[in-house]
């Protein structure tokens, strides 16, 4: 759930996968001032290409109310080809095709709606490349 103000701030990361690459090799999708590995403050701005690998996953049967009507749905931890880690819902994929090590492509999708009158929240989801 995100209201307009909070939602708008994250647009560069959620819509365009703008990330930061730190000298240690750590890649952060959310904005960070400091490398959590080396403590250094220098970084390079990169854009994730949107491809990665599933490290682990679950199929959620009991969700919070905003996702209630989407159950059951899969969520995975993904490491992108650039080394960024992210958590994403899996879409347009049969559950039997979801495996640790499976390759995914990130796609732009609707994540949830703030009820019938609130804003629509968009972002990235992962689709297993079959």
């Amino acid at each position: 759930m995100a209201n307009s103000q909070r939602y708008t701030r994250e647009i560069p990361h959620r819509y365009r996968l703008e990330a930061q690459k730190f000298p240690s090799g750590f890649v952060s999708l959310p904005r960070r001032l400091v490398d959590p590995i080396s403590g250094k403050k220098e970084f390079e701005k990169i854009k994730l290409a949107g491809f990665g690998t599933i490290l682990t996953y679950t199929i959620i049967h009991v969700a919070s109310d905003h996702f209630k009507f989407q159950t059951p749905f899969a969520v995975a931890i993904i490491e992108t080809d650039e080394g960024a880690r992210l958590t994403a819902m899996i879409t347009d994929t049969k559950f039997e095709d979801i495996k640790i090590g499976a390759k995914v492509e990130l796609v732009f999708r609707k994540i949830m709606e703030e009820g019938a009158s609130g804003i629509i929240n968009y972002g990235y989801k992962a689709k297993v490349i079959v």
Partner: peptide, 26 residues
């Protein structure tokens, strides 16, 4: 959890520990 980068994407607390369980079992 990380509200903007975990919960936003639909994961629940059981879901997070389920992903630990899956990784551990594998």
């Amino acid at each position: 959890s990380d509200q903007e980068y975990e919960a936003y994407n639909g994961v629940t607390f059981p879901g997070l520990y389920a992903m630990i369980a899956r990784a551990y079992m594998e």
